[in-house]
Computed example of a mutant assay.
Amino acid sequence: MNREYHQWHSPRLGRSMELLVFGHTGLPVVVFPTSGGRFFEFEDRGMIGALADRINGGHLQVYCVDSIDHESWYNRRVSPRWRVARHAQFDDYLIHEVVPLIRQKNRNPHLVSLGCSFGGYHALNVALRHPDVFTGMLSMSGAFDLANFLDGYHDQDVYFNQPTQFLPSLGDPWFLERYRRNTWVFGTGWDDQCLGQNQNMDRIFNDKGIPHKLFVWDTWNSHDWPTWQQMLREYL
């Protein structure tokens, strides 16, 4: 399997960032790690192995990015305003540094965002914010409620980085038209701690008329890597 390690100094984040690329061609997929996870998490947890045949066969090319969650949402040492501002810088890094690398290496016109647990939040948020860049999204056990991270703080940047807030009232046809032609898949389980958040997102998507799929698995320990490996094989 083609495996590439990339590292560069991000001017938007003011720090070195790392990522891994798996595969040589195929549908490009950006993978976000779980809460505070690292760019090598997906490989270490057997998720790349679960996709090995599709990657080696040229059907998928996977880009595993690093997390800065401990500098943004999870950073209790700074004010909530700085937490969301740091996340905005991360979004800028993704669109203006990671996506150009993908487009340099891969000419496939599609691009999928993917994540488990809090990585599911990142996958959904970036795909909603940039529906002209990302054409598909797969969230497994996604955690979409950011209220606990902000100590009651709210501003415009908070609003536009919380899909549960901005999506219900969104009326811009530019966004809605793209949402309705892109692909959205949510996977969760009956015993998943994030089941309610996924059901809520399902209701919001239904209310906005956005075609999507919500799959609720009848399994034990659905908020864990073995289940996510199975979901990955099923939906990607």
Rank of each mutant, 00 (worst) to 15 (best):
Q7K: 11
M17P: 01
F22Y: 15
T25I: 02
T34M: 01
F40L: 03
F42P: 00
G46C: 06
I48D: 10
I55Q: 08
H59K: 15
C64Y: 08
V65H: 06
D66N: 12
S67G: 11
E71Y: 06
S72T: 14
N75T: 10
V78A: 03
R83D: 07
A85H: 13
R86P: 04
H87E: 10
H87K: 09
A88T: 11
I95F: 00
I95T: 03
E97V: 07
V99C: 02
P100Q: 04
Q104P: 00
R107T: 15
N108A: 06
P109Q: 09
F118S: 09
Y121F: 15
L124A: 11
L128P: 08
L128Q: 05
R129P: 02
R129H: 03
D132A: 11
M140A: 08
A143W: 14
L146K: 10
L146R: 11
D151V: 05
G152V: 10
G152L: 09
Y153M: 02
H154S: 11
V158M: 08
V158H: 07
Q162D: 14
P168W: 05
R178N: 02
R181H: 12
T183V: 09
G187T: 13
L195Q: 07
L195E: 10
M201E: 01
D202N: 14
D207Q: 15
D207G: 08
W217C: 02
W217L: 07
N221C: 01
N221I: 00
H223T: 00
M231Y: 12
R233G: 14
